[in-house]
Computed example of a mutant assay.
Amino acid sequence: LQIIFHSQLRIEAYDLGLPTPLSSDLDLTIYVQNVDNYRPRFPERLLFVNFTENTEKQEVYLPSVIERDAIDRGDEPVLPVCYYIVEGNDGAFELHRNTHRLTTTRHLDRELKSNYTLVVLATEDCIGSPNYQPDVDGVSTLTVFVQVRDVNDNAPTFVSKIFTGGITTEADFGIEFMHVKAIDLDEGDNAKISYYLIGQVKQTLTEGLENLAVSPFLVNIETGAVALNFDPQKGMKGYFDFRVLANDTD
């Protein structure tokens, strides 16, 4: 404790008695002392951080706390402020208590977990791990929201190994009669899938299709819809096999 200032007062008490009022007085000295009620506080309570998945060790320095004012500090030495992660860490992060450097301890995988919410406590008690009490220590915390950025590390996968469809000779040229579909666990542009018909269309037990000059089918590059690329005529029949490539890069 430190005495900031003091004040002296004289208090007089008297009655209205007769024939002579009586009185007494008291000299009072008031001392005002400083109580060190300082608790570290962050300038902002929320911080957004972006880390990239499947990347070697990544780090970011957390912001400094607001400094003590002159009255709180008094003649006492300035103590270091240590940071601790008190909530939200499953072992993926390490926080250096003195340098305030937040580091990943392993490769992050966005497909397994796309974000983390860490609660960081600032304290002048740098010995041991703090006994965090949210209702008491909340004024000294920083919430760090970690967003895991995506990289293109997943290939598209078809929802089925074989897709089947059929048409009759009554079908019209250009009709979409089936779809192929693939999924990609990435996000954004990394999950945008394009479809391509590759190789030759294999014909089996076909009749009336010997003179086709073009591929009998077209695959929509964006939707995977398979469309008829010829005008069926009576007497045409057969089986067709072809391969479709799903690609998530331009």
Rank of each mutant, 00 (worst) to 15 (best):
Q2L: 11
H6F: 12
S7D: 13
Q8Y: 02
E12P: 02
Y14V: 10
L16E: 14
L18Y: 10
P19L: 05
P19A: 03
P21I: 08
S23E: 12
D27F: 11
I30P: 07
I30C: 11
Q33W: 09
N34R: 15
N34E: 13
N34M: 12
V35E: 11
N37E: 10
N37M: 09
Y38I: 00
Y38S: 01
R39A: 13
R39H: 10
R39Y: 08
F42W: 00
E44T: 15
F48D: 15
N50E: 14
F51T: 10
N54R: 08
E56H: 09
Q58F: 03
Q58T: 07
E59F: 13
E59V: 07
V60C: 05
P63I: 04
P63M: 03
V65F: 01
A70V: 14
R73S: 10
R73E: 08
D75C: 05
P77H: 03
L79V: 06
P80K: 05
I85W: 05
I85N: 05
G88V: 09
G91K: 05
G91L: 07
A92G: 10
A92N: 12
E94D: 13
L95G: 07
L95V: 08
H96C: 12
R97S: 14
R97D: 08
N98H: 12
R101W: 07
T104A: 07
T105D: 01
R106T: 13
Y116A: 09
Y116F: 15
Y116Q: 08
L118M: 02
V119H: 03
V120W: 01
V120Y: 00
L121T: 04
A122M: 01
T123C: 05
T123K: 05
C126H: 00
P130G: 06
Y132W: 04
D135Q: 12
D137H: 15
D137I: 12
G138K: 04
S140K: 05
T141L: 03
L142Q: 01
T143W: 03
V144E: 13
Q147W: 04
V148Y: 05
V148N: 04
N152M: 04
D153N: 15
N154M: 07
N154P: 00
N154D: 11
A155N: 08
P156A: 06
P156T: 11
F158K: 02
S160N: 09
S160E: 09
F163D: 06
T168N: 10
A171S: 12
I175Y: 08
F177W: 06
M178L: 09
H179G: 07
V180K: 04
V180M: 03
E187R: 11
E187C: 07
E187K: 08
E187Q: 09
G188A: 04
D189T: 13
A191M: 03
I193M: 00
S194A: 04
Y196R: 13
L197G: 11
I198P: 00
G199E: 01
G199C: 01
Q200G: 06
T204W: 08
L205V: 11
L205M: 14
T206L: 07
V214S: 11
F217P: 06
F217R: 04
L218Q: 10
L218R: 11
N220T: 03
E222P: 00
G224Q: 00
G224C: 00
K234I: 14
K234M: 09
K234S: 12
G235T: 08
M236K: 04
M236C: 06
G238S: 06
G238E: 02
Y239W: 14
R243V: 14
A246P: 05
N247H: 14
D250S: 06
D250P: 15
